[in-house]
Design a protein around this nucleic acid. Sequence first.
RNA 1: GGGGGAGUAGCUCAGUUGGAAGAGCAACGGCCUUUUAAGCCGUAGGUCGUGGGUUCGAGUCCCACCUCCCUCACCA
Length: 523
Amino acid sequence: MLEKVQADRKNKLQKVRELGVDPYGSRYDTAEPIADVLGRFDDDGEGQSADVAGRLTLIRDMGKLIFAHIRDQGGQMQICLRKNALDERSWQLAKLLDLGDLVAAAGPLQRTRTGEITVFAERLTLLCKSLTPPPEKFHGLQDVEARYRRRYLDLMTNPESREVFDRRTEIIDHIRGKLRGRGFVEVETPMMQPIYGGAAARPFVTHHNTLDADLYLRISPELYLKRLLVGGMEKVFEINRNFRNEGLSTQHNPEFTMLELYQAYADYEVMMEITEELISSAAAHIAAPGLVRRIQSWYDHGCEPGAILMWPGGQAGFDADHKAYKVIKSGRTVLPFGDEQVDFSAPFARATYDELLREHAGVSMFDGDAAREKARELGIDESNKDDAVVVNDVFEATVEDKLIQPTFVLDYPADLCPLTRRGDDERIALRFELYMAGMEIANAYTELNDPAVQEANLRRQLRGEADGETMRVMDEDFLNALLHGMPPAGGLGIGIDRVIMLLTNSKSIRDVILFPLLRPESQ
RNA sequence: GGGGGAGUAGCUCAGUUGGAAGAGCAACGGCCUUUUAAGCCGUAGGUCGUGGGUUCGAGUCCCACCUCCCUCACCA
């Protein structure tokens, strides 16, 4: 069947050529964004005209009169093609158009009898003939696997999907702007590393032929960014991919985007302020009415923006089935995430690791025996694991999914944190993680800059960590760098994909990554 | 890897107890100059995920496998 449709379309393509028209178009830079056209239309104005370009999403052919919807990246509107308004060749061309073709139409701009703003074309230009029909015009592409594997079809037909990726870009731009405003410089450090480190994860391995050397795709940029602190770069950040050779889930993609930043002469308290500012301001930015208005034009199918856009009480809101954004309380930014309402307003709640563990598990992080008992009660295998690993297993099992509202968890068990400075109490590390909606979003510490302690930490193996998942791979050059003296510093990592999930109400990380990793299709 | 769910036309989906594979959209032919998922008349389109099995007969029942989704495990 598909072959037949493609053959029909190739026939039409040939007929287009016989008309002397290039079916693959060429430069066309006179078109105006559709959202702008709809926005400037004046009901009392006369002699208005427009020139728009985009993909045909709907065609209603009435013989000598054709109505069609044309969509560009910011909006959709109606065009009308009439036999007696076009020259003979253009009319022949109009009758050969299919859903999915890219065209441009120019002519007078008027409302139709039923009130829809419409370009009554006097010029029609074919920009690209489409040989494969688009998905169903009303339901769009629903099949989840197809949406991930053939993202171009998802983007073409599902505006709410495009919307998520537009927001992703806006959020990352916003974060970069905030960091630049604080005097941070963006750097790029190796993705391919001879020694991997900075996190506890299994790496991907690759090979450089000329050097005949195995290299690892980085699991973290941390050790390189700290070298830059040694070199005198006092405020650095990197937003880039990390690769971890681990399982896939709704919260894990093997390659994911991480923000890491380091600030000399700061500590984890400063990192908390920065985290709060980045995330709460990104949420406020993304919930701003101006953005909601622009988005709304996608759903409007040609009705003028403004008709649906004024929300009562100055609140911004947006509802399209599963993607909903709202600013609910004035002065606070509250966004829905699934069944939850998450309040992104600063300041975020703070609690120590030990307080939370006592509250939810009834044991102290300093009492290894009690933690083991609790672990057995929870069905966690605690044999052959060090106390700190058992404690953390209990923490993850009992506390994590309770942390829906933004919460800084402070002061981790020192044994879990080889790169972190100890507190006055040597058993704790000056580290926090930020949890939201039960997900780990950020991780930061007051950085360890004592080379002797750092070396000892890296040499010590913790029992209970799986083979190959330890960060204790000795990086002599990193230790040498510390011997030259690294300023006391705060370091922060934020999982960008998860932030995007929270701010776009996406329950799966695959919905915020354009091309998530799936099993390759066989044959 | 364990558990649960799904896979039927290009797309969105029905398919009863096992008894002749369906609808809408898209496509093709025809009518139609103000339609809104246009309408009307007609035509065509299927390896029912793959491979076995049970049966007179399998989209439907059984087994294995493939892919995706959810969940658990894994995972800073």
